[in-house]
Amino acid sequence: MSSRFILYVLGFCAAIVSLAQNLYVPLLPQLQHDLHTSFYLVNMTVSLFTISLAVMQIVLGPMIDYKGRRAVMLPGMIIYALASLGCSLASSVYMLLFFRVLQGIGAAAVPLVAATMIGDLFEGKVRAERMATYQMILGIAPALGPLIGGIIGSFAGYAGVFSFLSVMGIVMLVVAALVLPETKPAIMQGKGPGFRSFPQIFKNRTGAAVLLVGFILYYMFYGFIVFLPDVLTIHYRLDAKQIGLIFLLLMSFSFIGSKISGNVQGRMGSVNSLIFTCAIALLSLVLFIPAAGLSLIWLLVSLSFVGFTVGLTMSVPPTLLAEEFVEERATAIGVYNFVRYLGMAAAPMLGSLLYQRGGVLLLFGCTAFIMGVALLFAR
């Protein structure tokens, strides 16, 4: 089986499980009505999935290094498919919350194993290019998830959306079981779970820099996702459809950046690429702050640059970790995933305080300052 085909299988498996995060978001009002529950509990079905996804990264990482890649990924996909089916059959919000937690636990294994296996299968410039391709495929989920969920939900309701996830999970499980090899390096045979390697990852200079940069990058990206609709609504009077098109623009330029990222890393090396892409991210923030208030055209131009920067940067940290940590590869990537999920969670919480007090200037100005500190630390 060709390594490129394996890469696409890994990418689409990760994209399918990632769809569970936002596929049914357009149906939240219908879900609240049909299950006779509160707005708070409905939103908890989104939050608990993400929390489960984040916590399991640091649990599963050492297990993947110890037991092997397939031994963790395939059971995870089985749990995901069964939990998705449970979500479709849930008759109360509490049943749905239970199955969403289970769904997050199963989903957590897939992107973690996928990134680890790419690190196992490829080296050097090819690894950087393949990791960039993987990130580009993975980026399909947040871009198309709400659109697909809205289409399915329009005629099959939220139960149909979760049934779709279950069926797709089973399909990808069968494909993965038939196609994916075990890629655990021979050097690691017989070694126990690497829970003790957590301090080593934080003490390692490259590891510490990558974790800090990952947190800031995802804090920055989710800051745009959370607060951009408010800016577009209040300052430019755009409706929901127009805002959706602007997010499509953001994701499109992110795909372009992901496509180029592998070539950049191949030419500069992953370490220099981390510093370079952080500098570009800082520049995109500095340009967006004044452009957001000038006109809609300037906002769109600067936002396109932000999207390009996001795509350019996202594959660099996991590539660096795959190079730096061989025996603890899954553990290191799991810790990174956990930290970046913290960045996602911090964006709406901390960003709300800054945005309410100082708008775009204070919100993204502070983000730019923290990005500058991370850049200095990385250097």
Rank of each mutant, 00 (worst) to 15 (best):
L245E: 07
M172V: 10
V301G: 00
V113I: 12
G160D: 11
V179I: 12
Q21G: 11
P75G: 05
M172H: 10
L312M: 10
D230C: 01
G160T: 03
P193T: 10
S270Q: 14
L361V: 10
I225N: 03
S304W: 06
P199K: 07
L89M: 10
A186W: 04
V55N: 04
E328G: 10
P290E: 03
N22F: 14
D239N: 13
S92H: 07
L294W: 12
A115R: 11
A128R: 10
S270G: 15
M172P: 13
A186R: 14
I256E: 02
L41F: 14
F325Q: 14
L180Y: 06
L376D: 00
F99V: 09
T319I: 12
L300K: 11
T50Q: 01
L294K: 12
Y341A: 13
T331H: 08
R340N: 14
P142E: 11
A346H: 13
I151M: 15
A345T: 09
T183C: 12
L41N: 09
Q57C: 06
E129A: 15
A109S: 08
I275A: 15
V161T: 14
L82C: 14
F155I: 07
E129I: 11
L97K: 05
V42P: 06
P185G: 10
S315I: 05
R379C: 05
R127S: 06
Y158D: 09
R237G: 07
A90S: 13
V306W: 04
Y80T: 12
L138R: 07
S166F: 02
A81Q: 06
Y66H: 07
I280L: 08
G61Y: 06
F255Q: 13
Q30W: 03
I297F: 14
R70V: 05
